[in-house]
Design a protein around this nucleic acid. Sequence first.
RNA 1: GCCCCUGUAGCUCAGUGGAUAGAGCACCGGUUUCCUAAACCGGGUGCCGCAAGUUCAAUUCUUGCCAGGGGCACCA
Length: 543
Amino acid sequence: MIKTTITESLKKAIEEIFKLSDTEPSVVESPNKQFGDYSTQVAFQLAKILKNDPKKIASDIKNALEGNNNFEKIEVVGGYINFFLKNEFYHKEIEKVYSEGKEFAKLKHLSEEKILVEYVSSNPTGPMVIVNGRAAALGDSFVRILNMRGYNAISEFYINDGGNQVFLLGISCNEVYKKLNGMPYEIPENGYHGSYIEDFVKLIIGKTDLSKMDDEARSNYLGTEGVKYFHTMQIKSLKNFNVKFDSEIHERIIREEGLTEYVIETLRDKNLLYEKDGATFFKSSDFGDDKDRAIIKSNGEYTYLLPDAAYHEDKIRRNFEYLIDIFGPDHHGYVKRLRAIFEALGHNPDKLEILIHQIVNLINEGGKIKMSKRKGTIITLDDLLEDVGKDAARFFFVMRKKNSHLDFDLKLAKEKSENNPVFYVQYAHARIASIIDFAGSKGIRLNGYVNFSLLNEEKEIELIKVILLFPDILDDVIRMREPAILPKYLIDLASTFHSFYNKHRVITDDKELSLARLALVQCVKNTIKVGLNLIGVNAPDKM
RNA sequence: GCCCCUGUAGCUCAGUGGAUAGAGCACCGGUUUCCUAAACCGGGUGCCGCAAGUUCAAUUCUUGCCAGGGGCACCA
């Protein structure tokens, strides 16, 4: 919010002096205190356009801004312009933050554009695994932050319950059924081998008599029931992970509504399909894909792409104007063909954004834990939650940028120590709660006028600055599509608070000062709480 | 072979065109008659993987190479 204020002043000054209306001066926090609070190197950019010395340009801008009473002083060093803000400016700003409470970073109706964010969408053929947790944490946090900043975003889970996977699940379950009944059995190579299959079949056997069904009927039954069972299990895991979806869509329904046929007909009308070796291919290479892709196999079944195209068609028909898909790294090769078919259906490909996050390695005692879903050696999201807890898991999953390979250190996540950033941030919150309690016991309560102009200590001004950054941080998350920026900020905020706390007492004999400091830490507390909640982490009052 | 991601301090990572490249951990030392010591304060570290190019300015952008990880289906 401060940067915007300075940027606006700069733009006005530049327009007045140089008659340039389309410059976007970038304002940054000064790397060093000697360079003030904020700086801009706009003079370097203008030097080129104006063919003039950056130092001259910088001092012209400085002169034009001298009348602005937010600034204590403005310095020109080299071509840089450094802004030193008055404490009164910070006092005014923190007063606004304080009066708005937990809503201070909330924007209403910035954009009416309807955004749909799809993530996880794992096959309902087994439990949630670790990498799903990363997608879930990223997606859920991102949607919360979008809505916090005035965007109109909805989260959605797509259930692949219409295709070959269900069939394979049924066959696999049926073979396991035979195994449990002492009959000869053979689970197909590409089927499901995890021990969770056996758990499910045992459960069904306890409820339903499967013995009178033939293999086909039993497979179908187990496939259908299995999908329901595993989907319910997945949603429950996600709920324990503090992830909830605004909407769930079934592939089965998309197919029943005839949208797959619509896709085929539309592409055929546009002459974008052809037959080869008995299969039907979509000319995705016309839209930038490396090669054409099959959408109907030679046995008549659809490949994954076709119903998924239908699903994206459905999103548009439900009047979503901007689509974001969050995929795991194993789907990156799929991006081009999905965008291709989306465009072929007549939609603007710029309205479909696909974010890819990278893998998760579980690290324990310094070593990687290897997993394979096919072989059934998996660690589930439930296992992880039971081991390290929801808060640590949520924090760790968004702590790294989505493009980095996340090494999830199980030992660290469980540590209740300074090494563990989740505890560090939560501790700041609990500490403030405790201060507020203590103040109450001394009869000091926030319920009226607060004189913020008493806050002039270096640590106090620092803390105000960091609080004021919060809305900018949320906007950075959105602009960069990078939730990781938020946990990093919260660590900074907690650190700045702890530093302040150790230097200054909040509650002293000076009642007016105590109230001002109490209001300040109340703002910190609100910011931490709101920030943690945006990444699905609790902010306890006691630890 | 092709595609994607990554390479920054001993370790884990910030830093997506600007000033002297930053945190945390680890290591050493200090701080509690006082609101939570799960905290704070001080101490030093870098061929920013390598090499060219673009730029007034490159850790940041481009290209090539090297190293690690992941993916290349009529699976999803």
